[in-house]
Design a protein around this nucleic acid. Sequence first.
DNA 1: CTTGACCTTAGTGTGTACTCTAAGGTTTAT
DNA 2: ATAAACCTTAGAGTACACACTAAGGTCAAG
Lengths: 137, 137
Amino acid sequence: MKIGEVAAQLSVSTDTLRYYEKHGLLMPSRRTEAGYRDYSLSDLKQMRFILRAKDVGFSLTEIKELLAIKLYKHQHSCHEVKSLTIQKRDLVAQRVAELTRFHQSLSVLAEKCCGGEELADNCSILTTLEDIDGLTQ
Amino acid sequence: MKIGEVAAQLSVSTDTLRYYEKHGLLMPSRRTEAGYRDYSLSDLKQMRFILRAKDVGFSLTEIKELLAIKLYKHQHSCHEVKSLTIQKRDLVAQRVAELTRFHQSLSVLAEKCCGGEELADNCSILTTLEDIDGLTQ
DNA sequence: CTTGACCTTAGTGTGTACTCTAAGGTTTAT
DNA sequence: ATAAACCTTAGAGTACACACTAAGGTCAAG
Ligand SMILES: [Zn+2]
Ligand SMILES: [Zn+2]
Ligand SMILES: [Zn+2]
Ligand SMILES: [Zn+2]
């Protein structure tokens, strides 16, 4: 398959496919005489793996590690794979916690403000951000 | 106050202070004869505002908007300020939702894998990422 | 036979929030 | 007087995941 066909089938851009190739995530098996990329079914399968890994939150760097393990499965253990997964999950959990704190603070701020068309001279959001202990109480 | 003193007092780097100045967030009121930045108490107060706004999740661009409103409070309404806050809160909520889906998927993946020292030939994480409907069920 | 739709490479631009560097001037202490 | 510790500027580098561009080669349809 040519790059355009793969791109259409998987709903990605040809740029993305070339980008992944450049960064060692997906090398098409063959090239045509004219030098065109020629993707095999196995290449397509690998691209689906990559996209699914992205869907669960892995970065491209992490996916590259997963692919390296997948390629030589018999040289790696379940432990390694699970470690990567758990590490990622915990990192995601940390970020969720941080963003949840943001959300909480923003909610508190929003509730303090009347939101009316009056002038912002005494807006509680602005004064709270000015005050030292505005959000810690 | 000189830049180093401000930096020490607020636990930021002098680089950060110069960066904020360059990007229009905080201009020190004066310069000394030698060209050194000379921060006033009001400058310090503004820097605290910026840091507190960062703490609740506003980006520097958003903080710049807030500062512009704060500077001319009598030309802006509570509505504007509250809008910015609500928009940000909703955006954060979206991101939390996305990351929570990631977390859920990663947990499902992790639970499927034994995590032992055996070879990864049949690792459920890898096979699930390969399968089409692995995570949708 | 030419038009348009594809394909190639290599390189640059985007946004975020800094961080670091180079090359040099100033201040304070010994 | 000189060294240490500050300060200045402008500009480059970092991570992430592409998107876009230029300049050109290839191929199918009309
Ligand atoms: Zn109000
Ligand atoms: Zn208000
Ligand atoms: Zn196992
Ligand atoms: Zn496993």
